[in-house]
Amino acid sequence: MSHAEQTDLRIRRTQKFLQEAMIELITEKGFDAITVGDIAERAMINRATFYRHYQDKYDLVARIFEETANYLMENMNPIHKDPAKKEAENPPEIWVQFFKHVAEHDRLYKAMLGKNGSPWFAARISEHTIKLMLEGERFLKQQVAPGAQVDEAMPEELPLTQLSHVLIGTIVWWLESEKPYTPRQMATWFHRFAFYGYLAALGYQAPNPRKK
């Protein structure tokens, strides 16, 4: 193993220790009560080492989510890959990837979105998912015929905000029910609601989701 690989492995190991320590502390005393000193002590490292990796406790939890969100933003092509597959049972692959990410970090999301978590974290998730939805909005509108808008639409930001809260609620429900369902199942169910409910919220005549 090269020196660079050893260094990278050491960095990832330290970050994992910090993340695990933070999750344990959130469960015990709540996110707002935790300090950087608490996290460093639980992870058995010094504060200087913590600050070499993260700016503060907010940066620690945000980076886990935002790195994935930014990756999804940069790889939006799957949402446009096959416009013919517009049935409710065929979610864009980007949402499958999103729920896989949640499953991989289920303890973090359960801790941060639970009763001892932080509204700040939920707000950050909402902010980034709204960006994802804006990127995919043109794809959604392609699913209806030109001129199919039948009612006055809501202000654009309102249905996006509503849908981001639905996504957070879906994540919380999934994790609290011990996630007996796969990421693809959750992506399918979320997409089913988003595809038909969201278009209706925008003022379009949404197709009937029931199978014929």
Rank of each mutant, 00 (worst) to 15 (best):
K100P: 03
Q143C: 09
A111I: 08
G197Q: 03
V102Q: 04
L163T: 04
M76D: 14
E156H: 07
W189P: 00
H191L: 04
N70C: 07
N90A: 09
P183T: 00
P155T: 05
K179S: 15
A187F: 00
I125M: 09
A122W: 03
W189V: 02
R138T: 04
E176T: 07
P83S: 11
G117I: 02
F193K: 08
H101E: 07
L72T: 03
N90G: 04
T188N: 04
S164P: 06
I168F: 06
W95D: 10
R124S: 01
K85H: 10
L163D: 07
F121L: 07
T182N: 01
E127K: 13
I168G: 06
M73N: 06
A201M: 12
V150P: 02
A69Q: 01
A194Y: 07
T161Q: 05
E156I: 08
L113W: 02
L163Q: 08
K179T: 03
P155R: 08
T68C: 10
D151Q: 08
Y198V: 01
N70A: 13
E156D: 11
D151V: 00
L175D: 06
P119L: 00
K110F: 09
E127M: 09
F193W: 15
S164V: 00
T161N: 03
F190T: 04
L113D: 03
A111D: 10
R124H: 04
A84L: 15
V102D: 02
A153Y: 01
P180T: 12
M133H: 14
K86P: 07
I171A: 01
I94Q: 09
T188K: 12
E135S: 13
